[in-house]
Design a protein around this nucleic acid. Structure first.
Lengths: 237, 237
DNA sequence: AAAGCCGATTGACGCAGATCAAATTTGACG
DNA sequence: CGTCAAATTTGATCTGCGTCAATCGGCTTT
């Protein structure tokens, strides 16, 4: 979907009261840097289903996700899709070598990002080793997650994939919303299927099976973990 | 396999005449830096099948691969293995956040690495923004490759996987050995299977099928591309 | 050169998950 | 509240790839 109702807020915001101040790239900046940094980014809103950037786009901006959830994915020429990750508030997007994004990013539901023009952002972090280190850390963490996901895609059964996904997604939400057995799933079944390398039918059937076995309860907009231990047993293999 | 015949060369070497001087991390160092850097690393040899480091190991060293090929992999508790990549000369290994390697690395055939103790290496790159940037670039490139591999694992058929692997492996060898239709495959069929998320039998059958169709010829220690266009067509899908 | 071994190949068969096809639920909108 | 469209679930069937089981071929050892 094309960005049609995108809104850009003209008036400034303050990093100091930003929701992701403590977890994002900016976490490693001191107050003086933050004041300078403030002028580089601007908040942009996207509606449900809008595309923030596409894999073949030349990279002109970096993005810090402030609010909402995004799906990050790659498409094969024939339309098959692999979701390579979901982005949550605090996630930093846009790093690349080739000068092009190497994946696409859609808003799932309403999204707010902090957008930075590539060149000024690059100048800002240049010669600020602690920021380079921070960016580096983010890249390495993602790399580690990517490797875990390769194991899931290449060597796990459908049951294991779904159980692992539910636990991993819950874990990511813990740091944002606190621990809970209620796990909201803002993405569609198709998104989950494309993330796990399955079909929508298999995901749906696996959810139903987990519910029949009393491991989870399927609720509106998500699931509730009824028997976390059982789900963990499935995920562990 | 445990490292039993590992050899460490006591006498120094010179980065300036190192085989990977132009492609590795060190590519971004000036001569003065290089002389200082020289004292940090030492060459270590590993025999075929030896493990250089394991995923649960505390990271004490970084490695620059000088000669040979390595397999990088993760194991599930029940023994299933996913190879997350093959390392070639010039590749830099060991970056992580947790303080532990998050994958294991074995030598495939004889291997020479340049080993750096973690702490002095960390001190050396600290406050050298161009080196941090270089490391960053390496991480981002790997991340991009990891995402491509997720697409392969999650959304491609066995034929596509094998064809894509052969072309990708050949491409990597081009920059080291020059272009050729003869593609050496130092890794076993089992390694290829664990890289592609297949079984050894499926890999073997797919090779045979490609050969029957005149796309490749299976030769000792590798394959020869007879009809690269046909293999590319299979890989593109 | 015979024996033994290990990786690779080949064949027969089975099954997890894909595909095809409805049915059902949910959500948006007048 | 009723209508329509989209998402999800469920069922029936199919198939690509895995599993199990020989067999083959190239190396090493003696």
């Amino acid at each position: 979907m094309k960005a049609s109702v995108t809104m850009i807020e003209p008036n400034g915001h303050f990093c100091s009261d930003c929701a992701v101040r403590g977890i994002a790239v900016c976490a490693s900046m001191d107050p003086a840097e933050l004041r300078e940094f403030e002028h580089l980014g601007r908040r942009v809103h996207f509606g449900a289903g809008e595309t923030v950037f596409s894999e073949e786009d030349i990279t002109t901006s970096f993005y810090n996700l402030l609010e909402g959830v995004m799906r990050l994915y790659k498409l094969l020429p024939d339309g098959r899709r692999q979701i390579v990750g979901f982005a949550l508030p605090g996630d930093f997007l846009g790093m690349n070598l080739s000068g092009r994004h190497n994946f696409s990013a859609d808003a799932i539901g309403a999204v707010t990002v902090c957008q930075f023009a590539k060149a000024p952002f690059g100048r800002f972090i240049e010669d600020r080793p602690h920021l380079l280190k921070r960016i580096n850390e983010l890249a390495i963490r993602e790399l580690s997650q990517a490797r875990d996901h390769m194991v899931l895609l290449g060597r796990r059964s459908a049951d294991e994939k779904v159980a692992t996904f539910l636990l991993g997604w819950r874990e990511r939400l813990v740091s944002l919303k606190g621990a809970s057995n209620t796990v909201p799933l803002p993405m569609s079944r198709q998104d989950i299927a494309d993330y796990l390398g399955l079909t929508i039918e298999t995901v749906s059937r696996t959810f139903t099976k987990l519910e029949r076995h009393g491991a989870i309860e399927i609720i509106h907009g998500g699931i509730s973990l009824r028997d976390p231990a059982r789900v963990e047993a499935l995920a562990a293999a």
